[in-house]
Design a protein around this nucleic acid. Structure first.
Lengths: 336, 336
DNA sequence: TCGCGTCAGTCATACGTATTACCCCGTGGG
DNA sequence: CCCACGGGGTAATACGTATGACTGACGCGA
């Protein structure tokens, strides 16, 4: 209803004693040499008096564009997506576009698989972050850029150098002398976590005397704590826990404390992502910083290129190892 | 562009050998007794073959509604807003509405104060969360509900029982024997923080022998650490730090540790909000749990009522004190 | 005096959809 | 034999905006 029942440009025209075209010209700012300054002023006064706002639906229909881009994320509760949005919105604003955010529609409740567009599809393009590979179907015909979802044949992508990041963690830990590594892995079907697991497996396998144990968990503290506990309770426990993200590392801290193990004295812990939590923990967390804001910005840049008819090249943003207080040599390093 | 250049219902009509009206009737599901099953089927086949999706702008214009609601938040980086969105989206979905999220447009970059609607204003209503009081102006004529922004004369509101929550914290701490209280306050112009400060001031003032010291900070760990440090370094330091939210409490932990003070042995710390971080910290944080998801749900309910022409009553959602490991009696309680 | 260019606007139209009013044709009843 | 009726579909229109085509008046040079 709010789009209906509001004053229209026709009302403004009547109020100002001009035609609707004139109102549109004046308010559109294209009246230099077409409308006298006096008339323009009276139109603006009338618009102000009526509290006129152009009907966005009508404008979108006429112009064939909404100048709005949708950022789709799996969840708004993860702090990771704040910076992504910020970066995307900054670039978008520079081009006069707006950004709105939404999560995947909860197919649990509503009617499944409506052939109609969801309401939030009144948009020009989509930045889809951390997508399950299958879900791409829903964007039939909508220009889309995939963020943090791995390479794709047909769709432009922006990804982190996850493999390099995980390799840096592995090198860091093995450089400190660790050989028995535990992987507290996010049991989530996303490209980034698959890549993390594969890279770590390969790195440890290539290491003489290397041994990897893995436990999966959900992305929450309690579940991570339990998984880490399982690893630390093994007969031959790992001396370092590699966690799939910072929140999981917080769970690992808890497990270590519950077993009376000092971090990093008796067990090293690493995270991934470098969200706010990483420096809130004690000791501060060794982790890999991912340039999330840059991902948003690059993704938006690619999308703009795509909307301009271009074929944006895949982008990969390097992560950076940030060594803090949660990693140290194992208590009994191997003899030289 | 993506709204343009796509197949329209007219294209489908041509493909199926019927009129545009028929396509609209069939795809709108209102064809019982008006279109033969065979024709309906062929229309659906044609639509499928062309990959037809109705143009949302045209539909919005025709129907005078977008069936979309905007949730406005100050920042997407705060974990607090995830649940708010979840609650709102759940209620909205039940009524066939979608929810999109956005932050306040960065007036820093773009042209200031454009009289035109931002692109994301193609919506039916707004849930505005944690607003600076002034910013309401931007919603001239858009049905809006204020969340977590304090009472308002003209606009429906949903708020937390912040005063009761803060009073519960004060009672808890003074019940443990604390008299010298430090307030690490968020230096942010939001109703909720003003309410927290006022309530705490009143509670401590009403307490015989009570003394309150206050330091303001930004809502980030480093700033909070510094503010807490200032309080703890006073000649007569507080035995308990009341923090304006959980993140600030994390900063307080850091300050205490830097000064070699045990939490809660030598200084108690409390938070507010009970976000994920609260249980990730060590010791786990005594805080006030705010029903964020419920706020989203209630807000959406109120907005739906408003859109139906109703006058929703203000709602207040009680918080609940959650006592965890960060609060304990002061080392040297006052003699009885 | 006439033609022409310019100024200041207006007219008309299209965007794509949903819906109302209509129309055609076959059939059954009177 | 004519008419009413209903099933099956179409024509027409409106939503509100932006814009290209057009128009009337006026000033000016020839």
């Amino acid at each position: 209803m709010p789009l209906a029942g509001r004053p229209t440009s026709k009302d403004v025209a009547q109020e100002a004693g001009v035609s609707q075209s004139t109102v549109s010209l004046v308010l559109g700012g294209k009246w230099s040499g077409r409308v006298s300054p006096a008339t323009a002023r009276s139109v603006r006064v009338a618009a102000e008096r009526l509290g006129y706002r152009p009907n966005p639906a009508a404008r979108n229909l006429r112009l064939g564009t909404t100048r709005t881009v949708l950022l789709m994320v799996p969840t708004l509760s993860a702090p990771f997506f704040g910076p992504v949005y910020t970066g995307a919105a900054r670039v978008a604003a520079r081009h006069g576009l707006g950004v709105v955010v939404s999560t995947w529609p909860d197919d649990a409740d509503g009617p499944a698989e409506s052939p109609f567009p969801a309401p939030h599809e009144a948009i020009d393009g989509v930045l889809a972050s951390s997508m399950p590979a299958a879900a791409l179907e829903r964007f039939q015909g909508t220009p889309a850029v995939l963020l943090d979802s791995g390479p794709h044949a047909d769709v432009p992508t922006v990804d982190f150098g996850v493999a390099d990041g995980m390799r840096a963690i592995a090198d860091h830990l093995t450089g400190l002398g660790h050989r028995r590594i535990g992987h507290v892995a996010a049991g989530v079907d996303q490209w980034t976590f698959r890549a993390r697991a594969e890279t770590l497996s390969a790195a440890v396998a290539a290491l003489p005397g290397g041994a990897l144990a893995r436990a999966a968990c959900a992305i929450d503290v309690a579940s991570a704590r339990d998984a880490a506990h399982r690893l630390l309770a093994r007969p031959d426990p790992p001396t370092a826990l590699v966690c799939d993200d910072d929140l999981i590392a917080a769970g690992a801290y808890k497990a270590a404390r519950a077993l009376g193990l000092d971090v990093p004295g008796e067990v090293s812990v690493t995270g991934f992502d470098d969200v706010l939590l990483a420096t809130a923990l004690e000791p501060e967390l060794t982790t890999v910083r991912l340039p999330a804001e840059e991902m948003g910005a690059q993704g938006m840049t690619a999308l703009l290129e795509l909307l301009d008819g271009g074929r944006p090249a895949p982008r990969v943003l390097p992560g950076r190892l940030v060594v803090r207080g949660s990693s140290a040599p194992p208590r009994a390093p191997l003899p030289p």
